[in-house]
Nucleic acid binder design. Sequence first.
DNA 1: GTTAGCATGTAAGGAGTTACATGATTTT
DNA 2: AAAATCATGTAACTCCTTACATGCTAAC
Lengths: 207, 207
Amino acid sequence: MAGKKGAGVLELAVLGLLHESPMHGYELRKRLNTLLGMFRAFSYGSLYPCLKLLLAKGLIVEDRPEEPNVPLALQSRRSKIVYKLTAEGKERLQQLLTEAGPASWEDEGFGVHFAFFSHTRADVRLRILEGRRSRLEERLERLRAALARTRERVDSYTLELQNHGLESVEREVRWLNELIGRERAEQELQANKTSNTTQDMPRETGR
Amino acid sequence: MAGKKGAGVLELAVLGLLHESPMHGYELRKRLNTLLGMFRAFSYGSLYPCLKLLLAKGLIVEDRPEEPNVPLALQSRRSKIVYKLTAEGKERLQQLLTEAGPASWEDEGFGVHFAFFSHTRADVRLRILEGRRSRLEERLERLRAALARTRERVDSYTLELQNHGLESVEREVRWLNELIGRERAEQELQANKTSNTTQDMPRETGR
DNA sequence: GTTAGCATGTAAGGAGTTACATGATTTT
DNA sequence: AAAATCATGTAACTCCTTACATGCTAAC
């Protein structure tokens, strides 16, 4: 059973996708797995229970399209069920997107949070990117230390593995650096635009 | 509880590390997490139950160093417990390292299998590397297809994410290509060396 | 002599998968 | 009309984490 209480990645992903447009479960799963394909692939066994939970929490509603020209008595028992966000669902989504914490920069969560960055406040985006970067930099240090120790005992495959790992992380850090640079530049641009008015803190893409 | 029956990554990792040298749990966990740091980090809550299981299966034995000069009555209740492989443990390890299948080229398993490649037969190494590569190439195609679709609906962050993912996978494929090339070259070298004798199939680092 | 790090363990639970079971719709 | 794919769902299970509980050993 998925997500008895805790969020997990799924809740956010589902809310985020349903915010873009209503969908039924099957379609949702495909969109999910193309969106996050490089990280994880969810199965129906986790998706449907999650939808059930969100339904129970009132964050989504189901829309069973009733064909009005059918005898009513036995409308097709199994038809597409289109889910869409409720007002509370939108609020919950916004809340999840505003929380910049470990959940948003750890491996599992980062991808999903990033995927919905266009619905995220600019300052939160920056905090998440920086959080992710410092997380990776910690890993970098441990990795470099491990590599130094491995180089002594010569196991060429372990070395190769750790080296490749190190380079991957370094590459992601460079990527983050570029993104952070862009975000900051944009923020300053926004700040200059609004500096003549009352605003001081830049803001954008509000709910 | 970890690993009631199935292997999981842990079993292989523990057996592999204990093969290199006997160790106690605490140390094992640290070595584990520096070895596989970029993939996963195990906690004691999974390590100790796993050791217990391996013990029950007779794959490892514990070596409680008894200090012989202590009154016997109450030897220190809690001391280091050094684990080491039994003959069956070594056999099991060799068996796990010889199986080239999904478990050895999926994300979770590949790192661990690769880390112990120096104890793996050359032909198995090649099969695993090629399996991994074709797995990634599938992913590549799906990713490219997803990207093409994403480029139409313009969400710059989703695009950025998928693009970065794509490049990461492409990079890993290039890495694998190089490794495979090296393996093949080495195999041919071995083949030439033994072509004058009876051998035809190259082999090395046997049990 | 008390904090910090080494060392071993367990119980409860979370997050997901697999395998199964069923039915509707489209394609061949 | 058979096969493929779309579509929904559940039960059992796996693997791992968190939080707790305990005790030893070195350093300050």
